[in-house]
Design a protein around this nucleic acid. Structure first.
Length: 471
RNA sequence: GGCGCCGUCGCCAAGUGGUAAGGCAGAGGUCUGCAAAACCUCCAUCCCCGGUUCAAAUCCGGGCGGCGCCUCCA
């Protein structure tokens, strides 16, 4: 498959460096607040990447997603809440798992957190290695990375060494640093702040060191295959990760850098916790929208383009998904025995076209187009009586094949399993209505249908009988 | 000030040199007790101006507009 690599700013063929397993690290959440849908745009996009690597490209994936559970924000927020850092951050890790599950994001192989002892030890070892190799220095109890020792610094972000805006850095530590561009590896803790002492003195990790250390601890020898995250992490976070990791190991850190563009709010602003203009997954659900529709919206724009989130786009997504579900429901109703070679070929063509789109740097909008072209052709063939039971199974298989990557049909199906009215009641009312229609009492029949519609259930009559679905 | 991205139908969104996918919404028709669903038909020449080319939404130059990064951030 082809994947865009931020390091080279172009699409490149992707194959894992070693064997058939992709070793991938994605920067996760800083758990001082509930993640917003902008965060989840990134996580859904990376879920699409993971699923494409597995189900389309046929690789195994070992993926790590971290939780940053120690930094100024988590420390301050936990203090304000009067809780321990661990207890406070636990809550938002749980919330992340709930929201991720609601959006159908596959669990990954490991979710390390920065404050786990084995990770802190790995960080300290890396700091020590950087000191030993002359890339680090101490000042006021903290350890800093000396950027002047890394001639390649700025390669990922394409910053020239002097290109940093003069005076833009208002950093309280700057007088402790030899160079304003240097960054902290291990930070001396202020009184009352959490501190750990595993060999480089008491303190806590700098932001960047955790990802470098955990990636290499959990994925093995560098370079790892893919390192991913939101575009805002390119600089300084990922740039600094490269500097640290390569300074400590002497080997390239990651082969591919994948960055997901931002989700913007209606007005066009970036959604950001520090701006306070955020929307969470549960906010969306509270508005009566389904998680399946949100996932659909998040994957309906290519991951390297900004996505402007609107309530209208969510409503459009609900309708689009309904069209797919209606098609699937019709396929379920096919009873005629036999099979039609043309339908078998159509299903195979759709699978291949879908795979080609996903292999092309995750072209999810194009892939959705393939799905809807299949929907149209299936409906037309159904109308023409050209679909037999054997074909229906194969066509359903084609949709399922696509959904192993999209993950949106499965989500919708799960939602349908919990209708707002008990299924046996719905079925009793449908039977009542059928009786009324049988005696041409259309007033009663329509009243039952309108009543159900008002309670969130739509009825559709066809020659095969009456079907219900959620509105 | 520096670096970068983007501007395609009313809305969302692919396509990035060979004559505009798909979804939502809309119009007309078929089917239906009525609806819904479905099908058929219709609905754009790609922000503007130049240029390169047999050929450009796609390449180049110049505008205009939007956004991001350079600072914590998915």
């Amino acid at each position: 498959m082809r994947l865009y690599n931020t390091l080279t700013r172009r699409q490149e063929p992707f194959v894992p460096a070693r064997g058939g397993t992709v070793r991938m690290y994605a920067c996760g959440l800083t758990v001082y607040a509930r993640g917003h849908i902008g965060n989840f745009r990134t996580f859904v996009a990376l879920d699409l990447l993971r699923r494409t690597l597995r189900h389309v490209a046929g690789f195994d994936v070992r993926q790590i997603v971290n939780f940053t559970d120690v930094d100024d924000k988590t420390i301050n927020a936990s203090r304000a809440a009067g809780e321990s850092l661990r207890a406070y951050t636990d809550r938002y890790i749980t919330a992340f798992r709930e929201d991720a599950a609601a959006l159908g994001i596959e669990p990954v192989e490991a979710y390390p957190r920065a404050t786990d002892e084995e990770n802190l030890r790995a960080m300290v070892e890396m700091v020590a290695a950087l000191e030993a190799r002359g890339h680090a220095y101490r000042s006021d109890g903290s350890v800093y990375f000396r950027i002047a020792t890394d001639p390649d610094y700025g390669r990922l972000a394409r910053l020239d060494h002097e290109g940093i805006m003069p005076g833009a850095r208002i950093d309280s530590d700057q007088y402790a640093k030899h160079d304003a561009r240097d960054f902290v590896l291990w930070k001396a803790s202020a009184p009352g702040e959490p501190a750990w002492d595993f060999g480089v003195g008491p303190g806590r990790p700098g932001w960047h060191i955790e990802c470098s250390a955990m990636a290499l601890r959990l994925l093995g020898e560098p370079p790892i295959d893919i390192h991913a995250g939101g575009v805002d992490l390119i600089f300084p976070h990922h740039e600094n990760e490269i500097a640290q990791s390569e300074g400590a190991t002497g080997a390239p850190f990651a082969r591919f850098w994948v960055h997901v563009e931002h989700l913007l709010l209606d007005k066009g602003d970036k959604m950001s916790k520090s701006e306070g203009n955020i929307l969470t997954v549960s906010d969306v659900l509270a508005r009566g929208r389904r998680a399946s529709a949100l996932r659909y919206v998040l994957l309906s724009t290519h991951y390297r383009k900004q996505l402007r989130f609107t309530w209208d786009s969510l409503a459009q997504a609900e309708e689009a998904l309904t069209r797919i579900m209606d098609c699937l429901a019709r396929l379920d109703g096919v009873t005629a025995a036999g099979s039609n070679p043309a339908m078998q070929a159509r299903a195979a063509a759709a699978r291949e076209a879908f795979a080609a789109m996903m292999r092309s740097d995750l072209n999810t909008p194009g892939a959705l187009g393939v799905v809807f072209e299949l929907v149209r052709d299936v409906h037309a063939a159904l109308d023409a009586g050209e679909v037999a039971a054997g074909d229906a199974a194969v066509l359903r298989g084609a949709f399922d094949h696509c959904d192993r990557v999209l993950g949106v049909i499965a989500l919708r199906r799960a939602e349908e399993e919990a209708p707002p009215i008990p299924v046996d009641e719905i079925e009793r009312l449908i039977a009542e209505r059928r009786a009324a229609r049988g005696r041409r009492d259309f007033a009663t029949a329509d009243r039952i249908r309108d009543d159900l519609q008002g309670r969130g259930i739509a009825l559709e009559d066809s020659a095969a009988g009456t079907r219900w679905k959620r509105v």
